[in-house]
Amino acid sequence: MPPTRKGAATRRRIVEGAAREIREAGVFALRLEDVMARTATSKSQLFHYFPGGKDDLLLAVARLEAARVLDDQQPELGALTSPQAWWRWRDKVLARYRAQGVSCPLHVALSQLGTATGAGRAVAAELLAQWQRRLAAGIRHLQRDGENIAAGLDADPDAGLDADREAAALLAGIQGGVLILMTTGSADHLEAALDSGLARLGLAP
């Protein structure tokens, strides 16, 4: 039976409270007692929504943070219909990760979950799949509308670039740049990956 509106709100409050705890103190310092105190919930309430305890809660936090990755790129990510829109999206992605710096709540939650049960892997895979689909849709829009005059982007999908493959390459570059940012604190590689990816699509700034 689906949760009531009040139940759904309580569950979301617990997840958001846990996410804030992780952002402030780190995942290794996360204690269920602290989450309960922050969210004004009882132990019975917490285990009602998260029977597996901390692991179930971490999985919910990972899903929340994965959704935020995409939400933070809107409305640009859902409207990649012109060269200008692509560059606005690029600027938003770069600003998001520069503001985030070396701490990535999603990475922290996923690394703690591990891949023993495949739960963390499934969350990451779904995030990347959704992200890639939206990038590919933007590339196809350019191909259909002829906005791009680069030789590689042709209105005939058999003659031009493979939208799915190009989206995958762009996403791989972004993820590599984010990993380097988390390691070194520098967003230079992320910026280069974004700029190179858009240049390959013939999108001049």
Rank of each mutant, 00 (worst) to 15 (best):
A122S: 13
G7P: 10
K6M: 11
A9R: 14
L106H: 00
L127A: 05
R38E: 11
L106Q: 00
F28H: 14
E21Q: 12
P83M: 09
A150R: 06
G7T: 07
Q74N: 11
A150D: 15
Q143F: 11
L127S: 03
L171Q: 11
R96D: 14
T184K: 04
G152E: 13
D56G: 12
Q73V: 05
L203N: 08
P2V: 13
D71I: 02
G26C: 08
E65W: 00
A62R: 01
G138C: 09
L70R: 11
D55Y: 00
Q100A: 14
R90W: 03
V102P: 04
T117E: 09
D56W: 01
I14V: 09
G53L: 09
E147C: 13
E126V: 04
R20F: 01
F47S: 01
G118W: 05
D164R: 07
A40L: 06
A150C: 12
A99R: 09
I180K: 06
S82A: 14
A124C: 11
L46Q: 07
D154G: 09
M36P: 08
A19L: 11
L30I: 03
G101I: 05
D154K: 14
R165V: 10
A85G: 08
A9Q: 13
L77Q: 04
A119H: 04
D154Y: 08
F50N: 05
H141V: 05
A109V: 00
A37S: 09
A163F: 05
G17T: 01
R90L: 09
A136K: 06
I22D: 00
T39I: 01
T117W: 00
R200H: 13
L153F: 12
R12Q: 13
G160S: 08
H141M: 13
